[in-house]
Amino acid sequence: MAGTDENSFPVVTLKYRQGDLIIKQGDYGISIYRIVNGEVLVYQESTEKDVPLATLGPGDVLGEISFLKKGGERRSASAKALEETVLEVWHPSMLSKEYQGMPPMLKYITDQLLTRFLRMNHLLVQLTSREIQQREAMQKEDPLNSRRRYYRKAVDMACHYRPVDVPAKVRLPGRIKDISLNGIGIEIRMQNTKEFSHVEGDSFVISTALPNGKNLELKARIVSLTTTGTPGRVFTGMSVTELSDDARKLLGFFLMP
């Protein structure tokens, strides 16, 4: 049958430098690319921030969805070269001809695969937008109401902190054991309390890195100090006194169940 010979496909090779745009979201196009070498980032452009979807490497195929949806489709995502990249561009009309002329049983199965993929993709978009709506709705709720939802989360995260009235270069180590929008529990070394005052009512600036890599900074006041089972360690319960809007948002996402 036609198209079984690899050489019957006219193949064009293209070179991209690091950062070059390969596919622009929203453009019309049905060319298919195969990565010969290099690395390509596929991402969804949005008004706020680009959302990375996948990182592809040698052997991976790019742009197959627009092709399989039979053209006339806008590119659903952008792609750019992460390093020097060589791509093979396939002739869409020849591939399309071969696809249409595939052995019928195989075509029946592949068509189903495509239908199932489009159904899952549709479901994914629906579920994702519902997820975003719910997150936004939760943020709009008044703090009193959202206190119920933003439960106190048990964590174990390294942090550093300092009394509010000392220079920022002071970094006392600690481990956050639980956190909510209103309160924070930190396990510290007894040693810390000897270097700086740690009594009820003292205020501190606390910094930590959330699992997503973002830095969180807030101010809190000590409401309790208790010994832990571990010698040389103290547990401080603090009430959050200052949290910027951005930090509130960041922490809110992190606390979501």
């Binding site: 298919i32 991976d60 399989l68 591939l95 696809y99 052995p103 195989l106 695969l113 993929f117 899952m120």
Partner: peptide, 24 residues
């Protein structure tokens, strides 16, 4: 049947399989 396909079409179908898997 599958072996009669061109390497390009096979790669294309493989890409579809992977996309379906990831999406699921």
């Amino acid at each position: 049947d599958y072996d009669s396909l061109s390497p390009q079409l096979r790669s294309l179908i493989d890409a579809l399989v992977r996309r379906l898997k990831e999406t699921s």
